[in-house]
Design a protein around this nucleic acid. Structure first.
Lengths: 199, 199
DNA sequence: CCATGATGGTACTGATCGGTAACATGCGTT
DNA sequence: AACGCATGTTACCGATCAGTACCATCATGG
């Protein structure tokens, strides 16, 4: 019988977990692989056995965040099946709450795009693909909810969300980023629809 | 008679000019003081005679950008005196055009806030003060133009602008960031007013 | 003509970082 | 028990970087 002395997760998961905390809180370039390995309860050598380089670790960390972000859409769908309007508000609520937490460091994916200016960095492909997919899903959901000109309304909401998360870092929690949910929901209420849906 | 062998600007100005190019294009943390001094046609020693540290150079660089950004408001005012509506569109046009240039690296001030996560960094005070002032001036201009609930509309536009500049970096020029001007202007046209201004 | 101050150039220090080599440890499987 | 494999540990290399000491250069102004 294994006495489960620690039940520790395998090092790869611990490293990715430490990356999520440190990279997002302190910024990617401010965290060394030594510090990352130490925070994960392991060392640099083990880290390099799971990730061929620091850049690929960054890409894996962002890929994990992106995959997890995709899950929010399924969450919204199962929370309000067949009700795209409620799914929209569910997503906005989640994004707004998430933006306020974590000492206002905004979206880790977007931050990575800002930090990693080199156009060929492997992380940029992950960020771009994720953001593009988010936008497409948002357009589809807005269209499904019956709004007129869904691309336009979706882009407005998209930019509102992105702006809120970056404004939290520049102006701080007292700025307009904190009002994201109210702004976005009222924008929805004012937007014209193709068909009236009031039951 | 001085043969004006080069008519070069004093080194401090050259350094700040090089900072504007390199810091914005490659990211602040990606540019060493050696590279910066070389791009400015001088050397590290002269650089440190004008800036006590790298962080203070960053703060001075951002302060110069902020001061210059303030000038756009005066430009708008003198381009369309007494016409706040036209001033608004002038500003949106300028911001939209500027966002698209420079290989889509967005707002250097906001990028700095993302890169410099340390809360006590001297550059953060510059960025926060500037963004706060921009928001206040935007609220005042929107109110002056006669819109109802000017704080609300100004915040929407503010987030739209910030979102567009960060989205250019994550999604790229094909994303919603490129449509900033159209989105913002139509938002203005749809916004309710306190008094009808049609002459 | 010389003094002064700003600037350019070189070389250095101490520290940090990404990445690797070599070895030790522990744990499960047969 | 013996093996194999993943992990932990230490030490190291080469490169880069912020910041400084020291000296050379050059213009200007008395």
């Amino acid at each position: 019988m294994p006495r489960l002395k620690r039940a520790a997760a395998p090092p790869r998961e611990r490293i990715l977990q430490a990356a999520r905390e440190l990279f997002h809180r302190e910024g990617i370039h401010a965290v060394s692989v030594d510090a990352l390995a130490a925070a994960a309860g392991t060392n640099k050598m083990t880290l390099y056995r799971h990730f061929s380089s620091r850049d690929e670790l960054i890409a894996a960390y962002l890929q994990e965040l992106a995959t997890e972000g995709e899950g929010i859409w399924d969450e919204a769908r199962s929370a309000h099946p067949g009700d795209p309007e409620a799914q929209l508000r569910f997503l906005l609520r989640r994004v707004s709450d998430f933006a306020a937490e974590g000492r206002g460091r905004g979206c880790a994916l977007a931050n990575a795009a800002v930090e990693l200016a080199e156009r060929k960095h492997p992380a940029r492909r992950v960020v771009e693909a994720h953001k593009r997919r988010q936008r497409e899903r948002l357009v589809a959901l807005v269209r499904e909810a019956g709004y007129a000109r869904p691309e336009r309304l979706a882009d407005e909401i998209f930019l509102l969300v992105e702006g809120a998360r970056v404004a939290l870092q520049s102006i701080g929690p007292g700025g307009p980023g904190a009002r994201l949910y109210d702004l976005a929901v009222e924008m929805l209420e004012r937007a014209p629809r193709l068909k009236s849906l009031h039951k």
